[in-house]
Amino acid sequence: MSQTLLPRLVATILLLVAWQAMALSGLLFRDVVPPLQAIASGVGGVLGDSGFYANLAITGFELAVALVLGGAGGLIAGLALGGSRFLSQALERWLNYLGPTPKIILFPVLIMMFGVGAGSKMAMGAVSCFFPIAISVAAGVRGVDPKLLQVGRSLRAGRLQMLTKIYLPAMLAPLVNGARLGFGVALIGVLLAETKLSNQGVGFLIMQAYQRFDMPRMYGLLLVTVAFAAAVNIATDRLAIRLRGSRVRANK
């Protein structure tokens, strides 16, 4: 552990020193590459601002609705595609190719359908997270151990029982992984939509800081957002690893 920790620590310090040297050198605009203390005070300013939490709550709510709607859609589509060879061969190719296209271009259409308010941001997030969740659920269904399915069938489990007692527990790891990917792209979708057109939310705050040329605040907002995304990412990653571990143990 300490063998990897030391180089990491050195690398972190090197990066910070390089940044500070760049900021103080005067080669770049000081406002654009601010010194570390200015960024730290920007982060502090964001965290100490009650208005930030109000906007964070709005973005968080939009994100939560987007994840529920897109996640439910993705789950249903993934179960259908994973459960039927025919559907998978007919449509999954489309899902795989549509997955990586830039979703933000759908935003003008979503504004027309769901209005300029929170509705279009939720829709943006939902469309974004639908694809990774559907793709990983479909793969998860196909990856379920056939022995488990035979056990379910020999116990004469009904369709719903097969789903809740066999499929969903057996594919927890791909489910969590899909949710992790979906969370990332839904967050980007919601925030980008907010920067494009909105009057509230964290994306709006980022745009506001840009228009006022308040660089420390913009760095503060971006760092807090990235830290939040990274924290969720690491937490779900750990969860997925633990679930995979428990499954391996159960199979032994």
Binding site: T12, D31, T195, I206, Y210, M218, Y219, L222, A229
Partner: peptide, 19 residues
Amino acid sequence: WVAVLAAAPLVLAYPLFLV
């Protein structure tokens, strides 16, 4: 650090790149 960079939603910082 490269992994963090890969996971970070860099496109969100587009106002920064504009500046």
